[in-house]
Nucleic acid binder design. Structure first.
Length: 133
DNA sequence: TAGGCCATCTGGTCCT
DNA sequence: AGGACCAGATGGCCTA
């Protein structure tokens, strides 16, 4: 919605210079606000893109929606937390295995998180994630 | 064509 | 007064 034009603008003779000035000021501020909002949303989208890079993807060719990205991030954080919590209680060989592989826990190296939880358990945690509506 | 997702505009509210 | 943030409205694009 554009700022309301003062009625006088269309009839030049009656137009008060202050009205025009005010109208132009409002229009300028609205445009500036729009530009700021675009920039803010672009920043938000950049943050979403960065987040997409560090959470597991369903597939390489289709990117997660914003909602899916947040859901995946939540699940992923909980899964990592589970790994850390569990590893502190695991037997020494498992802990050593985790320590050895922990550096591998980078964004592009886990199509399935659970592979790093245990090479013995073959179930994929991702499959138990909530499917977004 | 309907539904999902997204970008953009806009007005309201809060804060500095 | 002006900026940041938010939510609602709207229209475009894409896919099943």
């Amino acid at each position: 919605m554009k700022p309301a034009r003062p009625s006088c603008v269309d009839s030049v003779s009656k137009c008060d210079a202050r009205d025009v000035e005010k109208f132009e000021s409002v229009a300028r501020r609205r445009m500036a606000a729009n530009a700021r909002e675009r920039k803010r949303m672009q920043g938000l989208n950049t943050a979403f893109d960065q987040l997409r890079k560090v959470v597991p993807q369903w597939s390489q060719d289709k990117k997660l929606s914003k909602y899916e990205t947040l859901q995946m991030a939540l699940s992923y954080i909980m899964a990592l937390n589970h790994i850390l919590t569990d590893s502190s209680r695991q037997s020494t060989p498992h802990r050593q295995w985790l320590d050895l592989h922990f550096d591998s826990l980078q964004a592009d190296s886990y199509p399935c998180i659970v592979r790093y939880i245990s090479p013995i358990e073959n179930e994929c945690m991702i499959s138990s994630y909530h499917t977004p509506k």
